[in-house]
């Protein structure tokens, strides 16, 4: 196990997000007897069942009862336990939104939520099972921390960090077929501190979750066109890393955000809030799912359709590079 790490899984870069978190949680459960895993008839689909196989006495399957899933979790937290709750994002963030908000966030309880099948990762299932609204909902809840890991390794890091982080945490992952970006886990993951995946001076791509890999692919294409592209993996949407955003505004003056979420109220909006409040000029584009219900399809096809894949990012960057902005000459004086 690398220094500073609380989990270790062989070949984690080859495992899905869900597989990694199931195993990491089980490792953490060995050290912390207060961890309880909970789900609502999705033990296998979410992989939280791994924990249940190892610690059946600390595993609670509610049946298909997502609302009470969160109120019972709140009760267990009030009893001194540390519940980790996993279900599909659409149920955690939308069906049970008020239970998460009132029972967990309002009371500021130590409950961690691992929401799987987020975004359009379950693309073929249709909009009843898509969730392109959860970042918006969860980041609006006071006391809630929101993390969108890029891949399996980062999910492991996020789960481990969340267990050392006070209060409610929402971790958003996909269905489990998302390809990896990271090759090692010891890159210094910290909640609230974005990871600069590569440096660049012409434009910055700010991404989270599955779009991190798409940004990496896009940057390689853009590099051949002579562009120096910075990539920021904004794995924590709340609290957002303002410093890294302002640095990108100052140093690249062009920013594209990319997210597998409604283009309203998600990562792009969170980044835009920081930029606007800075008062600095910046060419800016948000890529994401348009404000509509998503067509059915395989996720990779949908990323292409909604232009949040490498090709879409390249297209958006090209357009943004041609946009004129009024540079603020007094930047250095004001910062």
């Amino acid at each position: 196990m690398a220094e500073g790490m609380t989990w270790s899984i062989e070949e984690a870069d080859k495992l899905t997000q869900a597989e990694v978190y199931g195993r990491v949680l089980t490792q953490l459960g060995e050290k912390d007897p207060k961890i309880i895993a909970m789900t609502a008839d999705l033990a296998k689909s979410t992989k939280i069942g791994n924990f249940g196989q190892k610690f059946p006495e600390r595993f609670i399957n509610m049946g298909i009862a997502e609302n009470s899933l969160f109120s019972v979790a709140a009760g267990l937290a009030l009893a001194g336990y540390r519940p980790v709750v996993s279900t599909f994002a659409v149920f955690a963030a939308l069906r049970s939104a008020e239970f998460v908000r009132t029972d967990i966030c309002y009371q500021n309880l130590d409950v961690k939520i691992i929401a799987t099948h987020a975004g359009i990762s379950f693309g073929q299932a249709g909009s009843t099972h898509h969730c392109t609204e959860d970042i918006a909902v969860m980041r609006s809840f006071a006391n809630m921390t929101v993390i969108v890991p890029a891949d399996g390794i980062e999910t492991g890091n996020a789960v481990a960090a969340a267990m050392d982080w006070p209060g409610p945490v929402y971790i958003r992952i996909g269905r489990g077929f998302e390809p990896p970006v990271n090759t090692t886990a010891d890159y210094g993951f910290q909640i609230g501190k974005a990871v600069t995946m590569r440096d660049g001076k012409d434009i910055t791509l700010i991404c989270c979750g599955v779009t991190v890999l798409q940004a990496v692919r896009a940057a390689k294409i853009l590099e051949t066109q002579g562009l120096s592209v910075r990539i920021i993996n904004m794995h924590t949407i709340k609290p957002i890393d303002k410093e890294v955003i302002l640095k990108a505004v100052m140093e690249t003056r062009r920013i594209v955000t990319i997210e597998e979420h409604n283009v309203l109220c998600g990562l792009g909006s969170a980044v835009a809030e920081v930029i606007v409040e800075s008062g600095k000029a910046c060419a800016f584009t948000k890529l994401g799912i348009p404000d509509q219900y998503v067509i059915v399809g395989y996720p990779e096809d949908l990323y292409n359709h909604y232009k949040i894949d490498a090709d879409g990012i390249v297209e958006a960057v090209s357009a943004l590079m041609g946009r004129e902005i009024e540079a603020d000459e007094n930047w250095d004086d004001e910062t």
Binding site: F70, V72, A74, G75, L76, Y81, F99, D103
Partner: peptide, 22 residues
């Protein structure tokens, strides 16, 4: 527990009672 939104209290109570048993 902070209540007011109806239909939440019994679930919280179930969690507390379950926690006590565990």
């Amino acid at each position: 527990a902070s209540t007011g939104s109806l239909g939440h209290g019994l679930g919280i109570a179930v969690g507390l009672a379950l926690g006590a048993k565990m």
